[in-house]
Design a protein around this nucleic acid. Structure first.
Lengths: 213, 213, 213, 213
DNA sequence: CATGAATGAGACTTCATTCAT
DNA sequence: TATGAATGAAGTCTCATTCAT
């Protein structure tokens, strides 16, 4: 309670450990992939020793799963709120939804998780179900619900909502993947502005989706 | 002396080996990733021993590069031809182009290469440039050229061509990534028909792209 | 807190390890040569596991270089001191110098290093320069200086000093080589007393070198 | 019998094979050592395939032993003849003996054999006895006999003959070792003229050996 | 006899994990 | 709790040797 009590610093460190380890792990897994990241590097980046890592996570595999869980589980709820609150056109809502997610996720290392999960999911069977339940299905539900709102309000054509929802999320995910793979390499040949590309893609889709006057 | 005498078994094997090894490597790299695939597994899957693999490829890394080269570099040329030959509307051309690629690539394990490259490119700087030169830039050029054709013929709106090209390829790549990651896991919750989804995405985009009458 | 409290076992081992490993490596390299000595044997002989060796030396090659450095670089200095201190005849000085070196080196496994270096130097260009700088050139300088002393004092004939220095060291090196090759094999036919042989050779050379009365 | 018969070329090749293989092996073993020389390199250097090598020698180890046997067994006899024929002073005889051997051996790759044997003899127990019987003991006998001749004729002092013989051979062997180890490395610091050094050493020894007038 | 594709034991090295301190 | 020295299973790659042609 006393913020300047002598042991508060250590106490706080101790409580912050798991979070610090997860952050270090996130950065390294995204940068180098699961296999190429050494446990010791993670520990070192979190400012602790190799042994300490194993006090919090029983294996590198469990650490990886914890990274995935921690970073993605909180995200969906925010989107839900945004959709519930919105009052204007559904196109505007979708633009705002994508912009918000991109800001909250696309610009953070968490966006790189998708890359790592994509690469490793076949080696971690449990992770697949978790990721589907926790990330893919809720995100799909959120976007589908929004598309349905547009259809119900007569703004959008009556197309298969799941497929359309999928189409609307894809550009964002695609951009996130790129940013943490080719985008991180000093390669010459293809430089596109991510935000502009994302906007173009979304505008195209929305225009294709809208009922023509 | 007899020109149709059967080649010796040894001889025939020697010529077939690289192809057999590349196929085994492709399957395993796509399934498990680069790091998680052991050299010996590849050799075994190709029906040879560990040592034999190294008679044909000097390292696992070079084997991987050979897989990329063999499977992707030939595809671009076919697309170029298709575009050169086409005479009808540009929307039809794009639909055909995507359909052809999806058939030639999306339905084969080769589509999984992108997943592996995505995952490994930051540990493999040399590959990044190679992949950009050999795959990304040519594909971008092909689609950009096609979009420009549509603009020139008054079919499409005058939007930034590279970004539009990117948008048109993205659904296909996205689908390929999905197929070889989550799509390959026995997970319940999200089953979409790939071809239908791809068609929906492309139609949305083309409709958004077209000049309205 | 107690300055004479026993250091922890772990701690003490950590400090002793490099020395233990170097000793094991010296013995095995001399006995079997560089290539025929397995890393694991060295580790085992030092009472640790394979992995531990690599905590202290990054490769077998570096271990070998460390063996050379540790065992030979300190010897030259002692000789220098001896020469600086000596006051009697130069013949006596040379006899003492050889006797001291033989005692310090010839009777220890370290004398076998020269054999291993001889055998490996052409596969190990870096070592060649190191060994020349660290061992051969200083030893040559020391003996040359001593011979020159004898010439300056009118004890020795004025012959090319480097060649004479070489001649004076050769018997010792030769003996060291023999001891760790043929001398270590249970072979019948040629048994000579090393010390006596060395003395005879040196006496012959000195007598040939001295100015005749 | 017909020197231009069509098959003589192949015939000669076939008969020459073992010799060609031994020569290639000698060169490579001396250059790189036993372990670092690959069987295939030897075969290639001899102009045959890997398999052919094994038609003539059942293993790399046996090839190595054959190299040693072939190159050294013939040498002693020549020296014996020289000693038997000589009529002048024993010092002159020794100078000639060393000069002849150096010319016949020191300037050829065969001198490098001693280096390889030195390095490997402890890993090839049979070789030790062979080498002692075939090379060391005969050479010692030859030199001892010659020294004894000098003593008998009142030219040399009555010192232990074996030790003196040893002293007289050492410079030559030493020089041979150097030539094929450090001498073959582009190292700066110690360049001596081999022949001059050898002469200096021998002259010193002979002068030390001679009865003073 | 000759070839060279194929083998697989074995070497070096790495690194996730354990555990004495 | 925290440390980091130690372990040893496992992975990549090499190369002596074999054997079908």
């Amino acid at each position: 309670m006393n913020p300047i009590s002598p042991q508060s610093q250590r106490q706080r460190r101790k409580e912050a450990r798991p979070q610090e380890l997860l952050e270090a792990a996130l950065t390294l897994f995204v940068e180098k992939g699961f296999a190429a990241t050494r446990s010791e590097e993670v520990a070192h980046a979190a400012g602790v020793s190799k042994g300490t890592l194993y006090l919090y996570y029983p294996s590198k595999e469990e650490l990886f799963k914890a990274v995935v869980r921690t970073n993605l589980s909180a995200l969906i709820a925010e989107g839900e709120e945004l959709v519930d609150r919105h009052e204007g056109s559904t196109s505007d809502l979708l633009v705002e939804l994508v912009a918000t997610w991109w800001q909250r996720l696309g610009n953070t290392p968490a966006a790189g998780i998708h890359k790592v999960v994509l690469a490793e999911v076949r080696n971690f069977p449990e992770l697949a179900q978790f990721y589907a339940d926790e990330v893919i299905v809720p995100a799909d539900r959120l976007f589908s619900r929004t598309v349905q709102r547009g259809v119900d309000r007569g703004e959008f054509r009556a197309l298969p909502v799941h497929e359309v929802a999928h189409a609307l999320m894809a550009p964002m995910i695609f951009q996130a993947l790129h940013r943490h793979s080719f985008g991180a390499c000093p390669v010459h040949g293809l430089e596109l502005d991510p935000e502009a590309t994302l906007r173009t893609q979304l505008n195209l889709l929305l225009r294709g989706l809208e009922v023509r006057p």
